[in-house]
Design a protein around this nucleic acid. Sequence first.
DNA 1: CGCAGATTGTTTGCGTGCAAACACTGTGCT
DNA 2: AGCACAGTGTTTGCACGCAAACAATCTGCG
Lengths: 174, 174
Amino acid sequence: MQTLCCRSPRSVNVVAWGLCGGYAKRVKQHAAPQTPPETAGYRLDDQIGYVLRRATQRHLAIFSEVIPEVTTTQFAVLARLAEMGAQSQNHLGRATAMDGATIKGVVDRLVRLGLVETAPDTRDRRRLTVGLSAAGRSLFAARVGDAQDISDRTVAALNPAERAQLLELLSRLT
Amino acid sequence: MQTLCCRSPRSVNVVAWGLCGGYAKRVKQHAAPQTPPETAGYRLDDQIGYVLRRATQRHLAIFSEVIPEVTTTQFAVLARLAEMGAQSQNHLGRATAMDGATIKGVVDRLVRLGLVETAPDTRDRRRLTVGLSAAGRSLFAARVGDAQDISDRTVAALNPAERAQLLELLSRLT
DNA sequence: CGCAGATTGTTTGCGTGCAAACACTGTGCT
DNA sequence: AGCACAGTGTTTGCACGCAAACAATCTGCG
């Protein structure tokens, strides 16, 4: 047999195979599904969490293809720093929706890449000021256009009104 | 000074502070932002990737609060197995949008939790058949209702028509 | 039959994400 | 001044998620 419906050798994103349908051929050793068609009416494909994950996967795939130098979160940090200048690591984390442990990792990697610089805050010795380096500033400037293209490509299937609505609806979830 | 606009001691999700606005007090050591208000018209908060990440964060927070026994991805695997019965790890990965390395990790953890069982496929010795255990079946049955509630809570801010539209728009991205 | 090429599963390395525990510093109140 | 409490940064542990490289197996085709 071997329906062979799902090609795509490895990765998950980029391509979008549906559910195929040629599964559950040899179920023998594990007791067949107790509810053949739907399971208590719960359809994974209609769950917001699952759909969000799939959409995010696609977006990440497009991003890393267009801007391989940095990740989405790293770029978000660069964008915020460009928007509002140097600030404490903690503020930066909140402004980019990352908790303390996460923003630290991202900042450390950006420092290693030479895109960001840190300095102790003399007035508040708890704080670590984070700011763009010259390289970070120029990389951001050189890539903002691509970043916008990525956003557009991600929602390429939608018309302008739909794109606006999607953004509006998603914003209202938070 | 210390504007103190953003309370919330640690975590990022759950709460939803806006941009506050009391930042960039001491910029000295890092050269001020080159474009004060907007940076080349790129507003992070309007980027689909960023909004997707925030929405996902909120959903994950709700999920782990309501169903702490398993993660969203683990539950997705249980749901798929309940839907279509035991199948190869590879098929399962595709059916849940996870690549080979990821589905392996998830399955391993589910095995450790006793929610899933694996067995070699005698017809195709490359394959590893994965199926629900009795515990997995009953946990899923006991929690499907909660899972549905989680999805509803995630989109609580939207009316039914908007929820349907959000799901539809998101689906079209993949 | 025999071999090239595809599938499947595994491993490693790296980058998010979050919870929890910790050390240090700043603030407010007495 | 002193002390409780809040804010900031760090570390560890765990769980995705993907790329790349491998070994084992299967398939199709000559």
